[in-house]
Structure formats: C-alpha cells, structure tokens
Design a protein around this nucleic acid. Structure first.
Lengths: 159, 159
DNA sequence: ACGTAACGGTTGATTTTGTAACTATCAAGG
DNA sequence: CCTTGATAGTTACAAAATCAACCGTTACGT
C-alpha cells in the first residue's frame, strides 16, 4: 500500500518497540521485589552509580522531567534510602546521597540489572549486542552533538 | 562507586533514551502539523501501511495496549480518517480502513517520516545506521521467539 | 540598594496511560 | 440447547505523566 515508506523499518517505531520489550521485563522484576516505580529506580541508579548529585543533575543525566525527579526523590527519602544535604553556598540546591540502606538496595538492584544484562547477552549473542551498542553510541553522538536543534537543558522536556 | 555495574551502558536505559530522542523530534512535527497524538499516528501508520486490519491486529503489531488502540481509533474515526466495517462472520470484530481523507493524511505523514529518516541517515552515517538496525533485528528475533516467557498475545501489555 | 530575570525545586491541576471489570459474541462439550 | 470459557472491543476507575504556576534564592544590570 501507499508509497515506498516502510513502516516496519522506521527507526522511531523500531526503537520504541525494542525499548519496551527490553525494559518492561526488567521493570517487572524490581517492581515486584522492591515496590518502586521506574523514576525511583532511575534516580536510585543515578545516585548509586555516580554518588552524590543534585536533583537537577539527576534529571539532566537520566532524561527525566524535574517534577518526576522531585517526586521520585521524595519517595526515596520517605523510604529512608536517601538524604538531602544543603549546599553551603547556594541555598536553593540540595545535594542528594544514598543512605546505607539505600546503598544496599542499589547494590541488590544493580546485581539484578547485571544478571538481566547477562541474560540478554546470551540470548542474542555477543555479536548482536555489540552491534546494537555501537549503533546506539553512534546515534547518541549524532543526536546530542550534531543535530541542528539545541539540546534540551536541565529541567526541560523529558521523554 | 558500588560494584562493577555500569549504568551508562545498561541496555534498557540506553534504549529508552535513544527511543525518546529519536521519536520525540518526529512527534513534534506531526503533532504541530496534524494535531494528532502518538498512538493515533501509530494506528494511522499501521492502517496506511498494511491496509485494512482489526484493532487487535493494530495492537499486536504496533505493541500498543488495546485500550490505547481503542481510543486512537475513536479519535481517528471522529476525524473521519477511518471507518469501521463489520465482519460478516464474527460480529465481535470490526475491520478498520482509512477513508480517502485518512489515506491522504497518511501519505503526507509517510512522506514526512521518510524525510526524517533520511535526515537521520545522513546525520549518523550509513554505517552507524546499519549497525543499529542489525542490532535491533537481532534483539527483536531474540526477544520475540527465544525468550523463555511466552510472548504477549494480542491485547496484552504494551509500553 | 533595587528591580528584573533566572534558577532549583515543589505543588496542584490537567491529561494520558494502564488495570480491571464489563458487554457482547462466538466456540466447544455435554 | 445450555453451560463454560475464550475473544473483540469499550468503559470506569486508579496510577502516572505532563503542564503551569508558584516560592525562595541567587545573579546581574543600573
């Protein structure tokens, strides 16, 4: 039908589908086990991996809208998984870092993530995985640097 | 910090980000021009590309939850871009097909999509694109066939 | 100092999405 | 036929996402 446009090959379509397939399976696991939402897992991961950072940084880095970050942080704080630390120079910003409890949860989930990754790796072979990763890298570089449009700054649209 | 888990390299994370980056830019275009949502575009594309199909088929094919499809179809119908056709054997199902108006819109958007694709292609070179596509193919095959868990049937979870 | 603008972050309202329950239909058995 | 179970699709309600306005603070020009 219509034209020579191939929907099945259309990149946005394929990427969305792939992202869903891959991340949904994982999300099910940690949701079941830790009762946390995706934004919470993301914030936790960012903090666990990078160490102390501000809410804005988390957002910029994990492409989350600032309100999402704000709520995720609040939830994690309620769980006593992170604490806020005031900045001595600027009283607007607050530095966030995981508590011991939070660190432990992070490690467990990181382990889960690694297991999942391994599962994926042997599921579609090193070859396919490497190709995919290189492709993603190429894409990221192109999109973030090259593209005509300015990239969103911290606290802007997410996705 | 914590363990040898590399968040930046974690596939679900990267794929989500990539999908967002790539499809958001495109979504902005058709939203601005045609006032339709992403599920609507997806349904339109599926119908335009494959011709007549049922709601369930659209969902299965484009990985959309059936309620999403239902609402998208309703919206497209309201725009007079598609019509429902009853099945003579089974009165539960309804076949959907684009009206002339819908077909025209589809063609225009398909053109837009192709332009965007070309833009992407030259942005990160044939090489990167091919790698990415091969990687995606590997992933799709692995996830859909190989995976231990039964794959979602029509009308199940989306993403 | 002072006014204006920008920033970090939070909150409430609106919109979108997913979940679950429902209607109507069909298929298979007994 | 009549029950049981599955299916296609819609709808009501709950959870989540986005949007817009806001507060307190800082930066800057004058």
């Amino acid at each position: 039908m219509g034209g020579d446009f191939d929907l099945e090959a259309f990149l946005p379509y394929r990427l969305n589908r792939a992202a869903e397939l891959v991340s949904l399976r994982f999300a099910v696991q940690y949701k079941a086990k830790y009762q946390i939402t995706r934004p919470e897992w993301r914030a936790l991961a960012a903090l666990g991996f990078h160490g102390r950072m501000t809410a804005t940084e988390i957002g910029a880095h994990s492409t989350m809208h600032k309100t999402k970050v704000s709520r995720a942080v609040k939830a994690l704080e309620a769980k006593r998984w992170l604490r806020r630390i005031e900045d001595s120079n600027d009283r607007r910003t607050e530095h966030l870092e995981l508590t011991v409890l939070g660190q432990r949860s992070y490690r467990e989930m990181a382990q889960m993530a690694q297991d999942y990754e391994r599962e994926l790796a042997l599921l579609f072979g090193e070859g396919g995985l490497n190709q995919l990763e290189r492709g993603l890298t190429a894409l990221e570089n192109a999109m973030l640097s090259g593209m005509g449009k300015r990239r969103p700054r911290a606290g802007t649209k997410q996705g």
